[in-house]
Amino acid sequence: MLSKLRNVDWIIVVILLIFMGISVALIHSGVAAWPKFQGYGKRMVFYYLLGFICFFGMFLVDYRLLLKYHWFILAVGVFLLVIVIFIGGTLNGAKGWIKIPRVDLNIQPAELFKLVLIISLSAVIGQKSKIALTFWRDIVPLSLFALIPFGIVMAQNDIGNALSYIVILFGILWIGNLKYTHTILLLLVIAASLYIGIKSYITFHEQITTYLESTNKQHWLDRIDPWLLPDLASSDASYHTQNALIAIASGGMLGDGYMQGAYVQSGFVPYTYSDSIIVVVAEEFGFIGVSVLVLLYFILIYRLIITALECKRREGPILIVGIISMFLYQIFENIGMFIGLMPLTGITLPFISFGGSSLLINMVSIGLVISIQLYGRQEEELPFVGYKKVDM
């Protein structure tokens, strides 16, 4: 036990503690204008304590056990995605939450499935030899791991988590020895799909608007119009992003000071404790504050990469790249949607935004990386782990 603790990357633990302090302080400032959300800072402390318990518990478990039972984990993950459609609650427009009343915690299976997807893809690719992945035997079947859940989660009005599955899939395929020709092909397909989709949305906006309103799905307009067609967006739809942009710009280089941001403290920016928490950073601490936060993310990801490079087993780096892909997408999407680069999706800022479900998944993910650090240097198989590498 003590020998394992000595091998833990304590720089990562320190970064997590710093994130905890930053998160609680920002949430406290973000809810100051919203009386009904008072106390969220204290609840975030509880979530972090629970998260650290999960973190330490996770890294004490040999990650290869998760790989052995990845089919069972995948089945449970898909089951939760489906069952939440019938029994789940709706929160912020997304129907996909299971409430745990005694601990006042909402669990989102779509959030959990990101880690499930990473484990399953890593287990399957890790069993293959190091030859390049083939298109029909490898890429197409593996893509179904992400595309089927993608469709299920899109039906729950959660485009943010749904898109993360595609990013994770591409990251893991890439580290799993994707051919350059297939890489270029996939990038071209993604680029072409984005171009055609955006062009079609702009060209046929009136018809799309009529259809979405007739099917009671106008929430998609509220997410996409402020991004692609801000002049045509309704005042309600553009209220969030416009005020966020003004608040970010008003922060300047050094910011207005802690709990001194005019837009945040006046309640003009919604969800400043969760999705919009980067606006609190920008308005109250300015460009310097945002840069420091991004630097902390950079250090964390750098330490994850170091762990991947030190791992002697094939599955370890694949798992870590999947986790890095998940974090990078969330960071880019969350910051990008408030500066006009990305559509508004409701993705939280990792380790900073309020939310027990997302925080616990992130903490378990980092615990999994530490487990890889502790056990991934061992080249031998566990005696009770029965899968073998196969050539495909």
Results as ranks from 00 to 15, higher is better:
residue 283 E to F: 02
residue 300 L to C: 06
residue 284 E to N: 03
residue 286 G to R: 10
residue 285 F to S: 06
residue 290 V to Q: 11
residue 299 I to N: 08
residue 289 G to A: 10
residue 295 L to K: 06
residue 276 S to L: 04
residue 276 S to G: 12
residue 285 F to M: 13
residue 282 A to S: 07
residue 297 Y to N: 05
residue 290 V to M: 15
residue 270 P to F: 01
residue 289 G to N: 07
residue 299 I to A: 06
residue 277 I to C: 06
residue 291 S to R: 08
residue 269 V to K: 02
residue 282 A to W: 04
residue 280 V to I: 01
residue 298 F to D: 08
residue 284 E to Q: 09
residue 298 F to W: 14
residue 285 F to D: 00
residue 281 V to G: 12
residue 289 G to S: 08
residue 276 S to D: 11
residue 290 V to G: 10
residue 282 A to G: 01
residue 284 E to F: 02
residue 270 P to E: 15
residue 296 L to H: 09
residue 269 V to Q: 00
residue 270 P to V: 14
residue 278 I to T: 12
residue 266 S to P: 11
residue 277 I to Y: 04
residue 300 L to W: 02
residue 273 Y to K: 14
residue 286 G to T: 07
residue 277 I to M: 12
residue 277 I to S: 08
residue 281 V to W: 02
residue 296 L to Y: 11
residue 299 I to L: 13
residue 290 V to W: 03
residue 293 L to C: 06
residue 296 L to S: 09
residue 289 G to L: 09
residue 268 F to G: 09
residue 301 I to M: 10
residue 296 L to C: 13
residue 288 I to G: 13
residue 297 Y to I: 07
residue 270 P to G: 15
residue 296 L to T: 09
residue 294 V to E: 11
residue 288 I to A: 15
residue 271 Y to T: 12
residue 280 V to L: 01
residue 281 V to K: 05
residue 267 G to V: 14
residue 280 V to D: 03
residue 273 Y to H: 15
residue 279 V to P: 04
residue 274 S to T: 01
residue 284 E to V: 01
residue 300 L to I: 04
residue 268 F to C: 09
residue 274 S to F: 04
residue 267 G to L: 12
residue 292 V to Y: 13
residue 292 V to C: 14
residue 297 Y to L: 05
residue 277 I to E: 05
residue 297 Y to D: 01
residue 273 Y to M: 15
residue 292 V to K: 10
residue 267 G to T: 14
residue 270 P to H: 09
residue 295 L to N: 08
residue 287 F to K: 08
residue 271 Y to R: 14
residue 268 F to P: 11
residue 298 F to T: 14
residue 295 L to H: 08
residue 280 V to Y: 02
residue 287 F to Q: 13
residue 292 V to S: 12
residue 284 E to G: 01
residue 270 P to Q: 15
residue 275 D to F: 10
residue 271 Y to L: 15
residue 283 E to H: 00
residue 271 Y to H: 15
residue 295 L to V: 06
residue 283 E to W: 02
residue 266 S to M: 04
residue 272 T to G: 02
residue 273 Y to V: 09
residue 296 L to A: 13
residue 284 E to Y: 03
residue 296 L to Q: 10
residue 298 F to L: 15
residue 276 S to C: 07
residue 284 E to I: 02
residue 291 S to W: 06
residue 287 F to W: 12
residue 275 D to W: 13
residue 276 S to I: 00
residue 297 Y to E: 03
residue 301 I to G: 00
residue 280 V to T: 04
residue 287 F to S: 12
residue 270 P to D: 15
residue 296 L to V: 11
residue 274 S to D: 03
residue 273 Y to G: 13
residue 291 S to D: 10
residue 281 V to I: 06
residue 297 Y to G: 06
residue 286 G to V: 05
residue 278 I to D: 15
residue 287 F to H: 10
residue 288 I to Y: 07
residue 272 T to R: 12
residue 277 I to A: 07
residue 278 I to C: 14
residue 275 D to V: 00
residue 267 G to K: 15
residue 267 G to Y: 11
residue 268 F to A: 11
residue 269 V to I: 15
residue 301 I to T: 05
residue 284 E to T: 03
residue 271 Y to G: 05
residue 283 E to G: 03
residue 294 V to C: 13
residue 292 V to D: 11
residue 273 Y to W: 11
